[in-house]
Write a protein that binds this DNA or RNA. Sequence first.
DNA 1: CCGTTATCAATAGTATTACTATCATTGTGT
DNA 2: ACACAATGATAGTAATACTATTGATAACGG
Lengths: 230, 230
Amino acid sequence: MSSVNIIIEEKYYSKDPQSSDLGRKIISESIKMLDQMGYEEFTFKKIANQISSTEASIYRYFENKHKLLLYLATWYWSWLEYMIDYRTHFITNKEEKLREVLKIVCHVESMPESVSASIDLNALRRLVQIESDKTYLTKHVDEINNQGLFMGFKSLCHKISEVILTINPSYKYANAVTSMLLETSHQQAFFALHLPSLTEISKDSNITIETQVYDFVQDTVFKLIENSKK
Amino acid sequence: MSSVNIIIEEKYYSKDPQSSDLGRKIISESIKMLDQMGYEEFTFKKIANQISSTEASIYRYFENKHKLLLYLATWYWSWLEYMIDYRTHFITNKEEKLREVLKIVCHVESMPESVSASIDLNALRRLVQIESDKTYLTKHVDEINNQGLFMGFKSLCHKISEVILTINPSYKYANAVTSMLLETSHQQAFFALHLPSLTEISKDSNITIETQVYDFVQDTVFKLIENSKK
DNA sequence: CCGTTATCAATAGTATTACTATCATTGTGT
DNA sequence: ACACAATGATAGTAATACTATTGATAACGG
């Protein structure tokens, strides 16, 4: 587990950031900075200063900051998918398997400290929570989608849908419910922290936000898919 | 119905755009342009040119484009809330009432052509669908929230939660489910158009996307709240 | 050990954005 | 006819999101 390699396809970058020292620095520092200051404030100039490099050098790795965000988000979705495979392949009970999948998605169990040295998983997950919707909430969605850059998210979504369908093959909305729950797992945690009146999940509970989100998501999925068997 | 007045509080603007010709032009043109080119591409300079005014004049009405987006989104949430009151206050059957609320939220029935002359409701709804999450997906959420600028969305959310609670007062997640469904009603429609593999809702069906989204949302809510009665 | 290639730093430059400030002009109500 | 609020016109600034070019250095192969 100490060194898992998540491989990101070439289409996400101009030059593979995992292939050089500078590249790995860009990744680790951009995760830090995006987490701290958010996507809008983040610029290539700032990260260049931070790692004592130059704007132009960053541009050699990523076309623009949107592509960099896409790279990080995709890394994260791939990592989740990897974790799902790793932790559920031996589980035969379908419901138990789905529960384990949801636990991973909701981060009920703490993350390993480091996977690849350049990736701070906790920071990455925080930034994905806030920023990942911005990968597709743009007028360029179709263009980006045509380049196949949303495959990471789609693949994760389909993997979870399949588990749902093994439990109830006649459920009509496996993909819809999965994409809804992936989104809501971020949103509800965000609301708990910033707009608490929009959710019952509370940061002041003695149960962690992650666990509360998991409880909600799990309650929701099973009601939706079990019930429709009748 | 021909002229409903949605009143937006002062905190959203520097000068009330409904109070002058230029103001109303800013509103109607910004809706058009945001719908067409999206939030990122949209600038005060562009809108100024479009309505033959100047950047400085737009700034007299709105501090920045984020506040303008917040104004438009709030107008939209208030309008939904108004429609809910208007079309459901006489419905006594609780389930029927909830269904009507969801129809309004999902836009199953077509919108009146114009409410106030300066607001193109169909364009506004399209842009809210894509852009409204950006009102809160920023590092300034807390600041904005402290100024009370998310009241419109919260108020709508609470109104719908109340209806849910009349049906099942012991359901634990009324607000969570409402905020989830408000978000998903946009997302699923967006996915159907741009990332179709993430949802069963299809643009190629002979049922409108809006109706399909309503079917999904309605199915979901009732399963969640009825089932938990046991 | 030399030459090639790749890598990156350094520098410079452009168009656009997101503002702020100032002052002149216009139109309206009294 | 005057007062004054609303807008237009103009200018300016700091920052952003790039692109282009050059030169130094290190690695690698023959």
